[in-house]
C-alpha cells in the first residue's frame, strides 16, 4: 500500500508535467457535452420532458461526459511507455510487490479523476445543472466516476502489460470506447429501440451511468446506486485479479 502511494505520487507529478495529456481528458468530454446538448436540447425541453425531472438536458447528459473523461485510460499509456522504455524493468528489479507498480498508477488515476470530475461538474453548474443529491450527492457522483476510471484504466493496463505495445493499448481503448455509447446516453433505457435497449441492459456501463445520473436528477436512488456500485465492485475485482495475474507472470 505504502509503495503504491509512493509510486502514485510520482504518477501524479508526471501528469501535472504533461498538461498536453491532461487537458484533453477535460476538454473532449466538455466538447461532447456541449455538442450533444446543442443537438438535442430543443428536442427535449425541460418543461415537457418527463425524464429530465425539471432540469435541462445538460443535467441528463453530464454523466455521459463524465464517463467519457473516465475512459481515457491514460495510466495504461504511461505504463506501456515505461515498458517500452525499460523503466518498468527497473521498477520490477526493486524489492516491492509488483502489483504496486500497476496500483500506484491507479491511485493517481483516482485522484486525477476526482479533481477532473469535480471541475467538470462545477463547470456545468452555471449552465443550470443541479445536483439533486446536494453536496453529498456531488461527492458520491465524482467518487463513482473516479472509481469507474480506476476500473477502466486497470483493464487497459492489463492490455498494456499483455501487449507491451503503445499502439495495441491505444487500439484496445478504441474497442472499449463504443461501450460508452451502447447505453441510455441520449434518452432513458425504456425509450430506446428494443435492440438498443437489450444491448444497453447487458452493458455494465449502463448501470454506472444510471447510478451517476440518479444523483443528478433524483437525489439518492438506492437501487440505481447499488447497481452502479455492484458493477464497479465486480469489474474492479476482475480487473484486480487480471492485473495481479498478469504482472506477477510478466517475464
Amino acid at each position: 500500500m505504502k509503495t503504491s502511494l509512493i509510486l502514485g505520487q510520482r504518477a501524479l507529478r508526471e501528469s501535472l508535467r504533461t498538461p498536453d495529456s491532461l487537458l484533453p481528458t477535460l476538454l473532449i468530454p466538455l466538447f461532447f457535452l456541449v455538442v450533444n446538448v446543442g443537438q438535442a436540447a430543443r428536442i427535449f425541453p425541460s418543461a415537457g420532458t418527463e425524464f429530465l425531472k425539471g432540469q435541462n438536458y445538460a443535467a441528463f447528459q453530464l454523466p455521459s461526459s463524465l464517463l467519457v473523461a473516465a475512459s481515457f485510460g491514460s495510466a495504461a499509456l504511461y505504463l506501456v511507455e515505461e515498458v517500452e522504455g525499460g523503466y518498468f524493468d527497473k521498477l520490477r528489479a526493486t524489492p516491492i510487490p509488483r502489483m504496486a507498480i500497476a496500483f500506484g498508477r491507479l491511485y493517481a488515476e483516482l485522484v486525477k479523476m476526482l479533481v477532473l470530475g469535480a471541475v467538470m461538474v462545477l463547470i456545468a453548474l452555471p449552465f443550470g445543472v443541479r445536483i439533486e443529491g446536494g453536496i453529498l450527492g456531488f461527492v458520491v457522483l465524482i467518487t463513482v466516476i473516479a472509481l469507474w476510471s480506476v476500473v477502466f484504466s486497470g483493464i487497459m493496463q492489463v492490455v498494456a502489460l499483455k501487449s507491451r505495445s503503445a499502439a495495441a493499448t491505444q487500439s484496445a481503448s478504441l474497442v472499449f470506447f463504443p461501450l460508452l455509447f451502447v447505453t441510455p446516453n441520449f434518452v432513458p433505457r425504456h425509450l430506446l429501440t428494443r435492440p438498443m435497449e437489450i444491448a444497453a441492459t447487458v452493458n455494465p456501463v449502463t448501470y454506472v451511468m444510471e447510478g451517476a445520473r440518479s444523483l443528478i436528477l433524483d437525489g439518492f436512488d438506492g437501487p440505481a446506486l447499488l447497481r452502479a456500485l455492484a458493477v464497479i465492485v465486480a469489474a474492479g475485482a476482475l480487473m484486480t485479479w487480471l492485473t495481479v495475474r498478469t504482472i506477477n507472470s510478466y517475464d
Binding site: 509512493i6 507529478r13 508526471e14 515505461e82 522504455g85 525499460g86 523503466y87 524493468d89
Partner: peptide, 23 residues
C-alpha cells in the same frame, strides 16, 4: 539494464529519491 531505463519526466534527484524509497 541495456539502454538506461529511466523515467524521463522526473528530475535526476527525484528519480534517485524514488528508487531509494522503493528500497
Amino acid at each position: 539494464l541495456q539502454e538506461a531505463g529511466l523515467d524521463a519526466r522526473q528530475t535526476g534527484r527525484e528519480l534517485l529519491v524514488l528508487q531509494a524509497r522503493l528500497f
